[in-house]
Measured scan of single mutants.
Amino acid sequence: VTTYKLVINGKTLKGETTTKAVDAETAEKAFKQYANDNGVDGVWTYDDATKTFTVTE
């Protein structure tokens, strides 16, 4: 299990959150659900070296 980070650069929501997941794909699903629940819809990137997803509106 690895800790992944999400950086949110939204129009109305900015911040960070983390999740523990077995792989990046599982973390991405959780983060996309989180973003959707919070009304954030943007461009996604992922940096494997830092295990960090970024979504920018």
Rank of each mutant, 00 (worst) to 15 (best):
A35D: 01
T17F: 13
D47V: 05
T19Y: 14
Q33H: 10
T19L: 14
W44D: 00
A24E: 07
V40A: 04
N9Y: 12
A35E: 01
A49W: 07
T2V: 12
E28R: 14
A27Y: 00
T45P: 00
N9D: 10
D37H: 10
N9K: 11
K51D: 03
G10D: 03
T26I: 07
E57Q: 10
N38G: 05
F53D: 00
D23R: 05
L13N: 06
D47Q: 04
K11M: 11
T17A: 12
K14E: 06
E57V: 10
A21K: 03
I8E: 01
A24F: 12
Q33W: 05
L6Q: 01
Q33V: 09
E57Y: 08
T26Q: 13
G15P: 05
F31P: 00
T12S: 13
G10M: 15
T3S: 09
A24C: 08
E57T: 08
K32L: 08
L6D: 01
Y4F: 10
V40F: 11
G42S: 02
K14Q: 12
K14A: 09
A24L: 10
E28F: 15
K20A: 13
D48Q: 10
W44S: 00
F53Y: 06
Q33L: 10
T26M: 13
T50Y: 05
F31W: 02
T56D: 10
K32H: 09
D37P: 01
F31R: 00
G15C: 12
K14P: 06
Y46C: 01
T56A: 05
E25L: 13
A35S: 05
N36H: 15
A30T: 15
D48P: 13
K29P: 02
Y46R: 02
T3K: 09
A35C: 11
V40K: 02
V43C: 09
Q33P: 02
T54N: 05
V40T: 03
T50G: 04
N38E: 06
V55W: 02
V55L: 10
N36P: 01
D37R: 09
V7S: 04
T45N: 08
Y4V: 01
T18L: 09
A30N: 10
T52M: 04
A30E: 12
E28A: 12
G10H: 06
G10L: 15
A24Y: 15
F31N: 00
D47W: 04
K51Y: 10
A27W: 01
Q33F: 05
T52V: 07
T2D: 12
T50S: 11
V1T: 15
E16G: 10
T18N: 07
A30C: 09
V55G: 00
A49P: 06
T18E: 12
T56V: 08
D47C: 10
K5L: 09
A49K: 12
N38H: 14
T18V: 08
T50Q: 06
T2L: 13
D41F: 14
T26F: 05
G10K: 05
G15Y: 15
V43T: 10
A49G: 08
E16K: 07
V7E: 05
G42R: 01
K32N: 04
V22K: 11
D23I: 03
D47R: 03
T3I: 13
V22P: 14
V55S: 02
G42M: 02
A30K: 12
N36F: 13
D23L: 05
W44Q: 01
K20M: 15
V43W: 10
T18K: 07
K29D: 05
T3G: 04
D47T: 05
T18F: 13
T12A: 11
T56L: 06
F53A: 00
T45E: 12
T2R: 08
D48N: 08
L6H: 00
F31M: 03
D41Y: 13
D48S: 11
T2F: 12
V22A: 11
A30S: 10
A35M: 08
A27N: 00
T26G: 06
T56N: 07
E16D: 05
K20C: 13
F53E: 00
A35K: 01
T19C: 12
A21H: 03
D23T: 07
D41A: 12
G42L: 03
L13K: 10
N9F: 11
I8Q: 02
E28H: 12
D23C: 05
T2N: 13
T17S: 10
V43G: 04
V40R: 02
N9G: 04
V55C: 06
V43F: 10
T19R: 06
A27Q: 01
F53T: 00
K51T: 04
A21Q: 05
V55K: 00
K51G: 04
E57G: 05
D47F: 04
K11I: 11
T17E: 05
E25D: 11
V40M: 06
G15D: 09
T50M: 07
A27R: 00
Y4P: 01
A49C: 06
Y34R: 03
T19V: 15
K32V: 07
V1S: 11
T54A: 04
T12C: 13
K14G: 06
T19S: 05
K20L: 15
Y46P: 00
V43R: 06
F31K: 00
K20S: 15
T45D: 09
V7Y: 07
K29Y: 06
T56F: 07
L13G: 09
K11H: 14
D41K: 13
A21T: 05
V1M: 13
T54K: 04
E16S: 12
T50W: 04
Y34V: 05
T12L: 13
T19P: 01
Q33Y: 05
D37A: 15
N36L: 15
I8D: 01
G39P: 02
T54P: 00
N9Q: 15
E57D: 08
V7A: 04
A30P: 02
T3L: 13
K14V: 09
K20V: 15
A21P: 01
E28P: 00
L6R: 00
K32W: 06
K32T: 04
K5T: 12
D41T: 15
N36T: 14
D47N: 09
G15I: 12
T52H: 02
K14I: 13
A49D: 12
F31S: 00
N38T: 07
G10R: 04
T26C: 07
D41G: 10
A30H: 15
